[in-house]
Amino acid sequence: MAEQMFKPPHPGEVLRELCIEPLGLSVTAAAAGLGVSRKTLSAILNGRAGISAEMAIRLSMAFDTTAESWMNQQIQFDLWIAKQHAEDLKVKRLCAAA
Rank of each mutant, 00 (worst) to 15 (best):
L18V: 13
L25M: 08
A32F: 15
G24T: 06
N46P: 14
L94W: 09
K90W: 07
V36P: 09
E87K: 11
K90R: 07
V27G: 04
S69I: 07
N72T: 08
H85G: 01
L25K: 00
M61P: 00
L23H: 10
S37Y: 00
M71G: 08
I75S: 11
R93W: 01
F63R: 02
L15D: 09
K39E: 14
C95L: 12
K39H: 07
P22F: 06
I81Q: 12
W80L: 14
T28W: 01
A97M: 09
T28D: 07
R58F: 00
L34P: 06
L89H: 04
M71A: 15
W80K: 06
L94R: 00
R38L: 01
L45P: 12
A86F: 07
Q4A: 04
I44L: 03
V36M: 00
K7W: 02
K92W: 07
A56H: 09
T66R: 07
D78Q: 00
I44C: 04
E13H: 04
G50R: 08
D78H: 08
A86N: 01
A67Q: 07
V27Y: 03
N46D: 11
S69P: 06
L59I: 05
L59S: 10
A29Y: 02
H85P: 00
L59T: 06
L41T: 09
I57W: 07
L15K: 05
I20L: 04
D64I: 03
M61A: 05
D78A: 14
L34T: 15
A53E: 14
K90P: 13
A29Q: 08
A43D: 15
Q74P: 01
M1R: 13
A53S: 07
K90Y: 05
L15C: 04
C95F: 03
A62V: 12
I57E: 13
T65M: 03
K39R: 15
D64A: 08
A30D: 03
T66G: 12
D78Y: 15
F6H: 08
L25D: 02
A32Q: 03
S69Y: 04
K83V: 15
Q4E: 01
T65E: 14
E68W: 08
K83E: 10
T66L: 06
L94D: 15
I57P: 09
E87P: 06
S26T: 06
P8R: 05
